[in-house]
Nucleic acid binder design. Structure first.
Lengths: 159, 159
DNA sequence: ATATGTGCAAATTCTTTGCATTAGA
DNA sequence: TCTAATGCAAAGAATTTGCACATAT
């Protein structure tokens, strides 16, 4: 019952994991080691990850990359995971904490991601609902050059 | 000077076309028939189109699909065209009128697109700039079920 | 026991690239 | 003329699918 199999899995993370597993279960999905491991990684680590990144973050050889795609499918279906689209041809995934959703600021140079906890779009969704749309959602990603990359660019005499 | 080669190309559209060609020219790009035809289509028709759709909308056999991709590249570079990302794995492109940018409401069922002329994100970009980011831009797409699709769903007794 | 999940290989989809040829400035 | 643009074919990258085998419930 007590777990110490991972270096840094806090009690809160365990609670989230158990809750997530329960969601999966009650949606008729089976609990398998790839899914459990994926959820652990997604709960512990920050930032949205690509399928390939996720696969690399799993214990070596635990499963095939294809299984990551398929597992993510189950996690998305059950809303445990949100898909992010940074417009570079690769989808990334992050754990859905269920709290009010946030947005990302992506650096064009180094691809670093910062979360922006404010959501400006509540009024927007309301407006669109007034236009007659149902099930309104939105995606909003912000792009820019981060401070570090601006400094990096300012230093060298390459220009 | 007068043109009647297209059924419905208004004077305003011609002005836009000429302006766009000038932008291309002064950026060191050559004016070719595929590029001219692409711009015509993009100026005349509404809604963002995929590369494949654009190719189909061109006069038959005018150019190879690959040329559409490459031409769009030139149009994007010169900011004549904006790329839209509806998160379905296919990029779409629309003519950049240069006026304040708008956003799209995409119907999940029928994929119809409506423009939303309001932009909520000016304050957001300002905030992100205050966080130290430079060259801040954003993408915002709204998804929902359009009125027609809601009615279509309500009628049939399939449920 | 049995349906769901997985691995491996191969297919799909969208987009990009290499290279010889064509054509705009 | 001389470089940029095009066509065709082929490569690439991310993701999905088919099918036999493995496994959670």
């Amino acid at each position: 019952m007590h777990s110490h199999d991972h270096a840094s899995s806090s009690e809160e993370e365990n609670v989230r994991l158990e809750r997530a597993l329960e969601v999966l279960r009650s949606a008729g999905h089976r609990i398998t080691s790839p899914r459990k491991a994926l959820l652990k990684v997604l709960i512990q680590e920050h930032g949205p990850f690509s399928a390939e990144e996720l696969h690399r973050m799993l214990p070596a050889g635990l499963c095939d990359p294809v299984t990551v795609y398929r597992s993510i499918g189950a996690l998305e279906e059950t809303n445990l995971v949100r898909r992010c689209d940074f417009g570079d041809g690769t989808y990334r995934y992050e754990f859905n904490t269920g709290e009010h959703h946030h947005h990302h600021i992506i650096c064009r140079q180094c691809s670093s991601v910062r979360n922006l906890e404010v959501c400006f779009a509540d009024g927007l969704e309301r407006l669109v609902r007034q236009m007659g749309y149902a099930n309104v959602t939105h995606t909003l990603e912000i792009f820019g050059t981060c401070v570090a990359c601006q400094e990096r660019r300012a230093e060298p005499a390459t220009e």
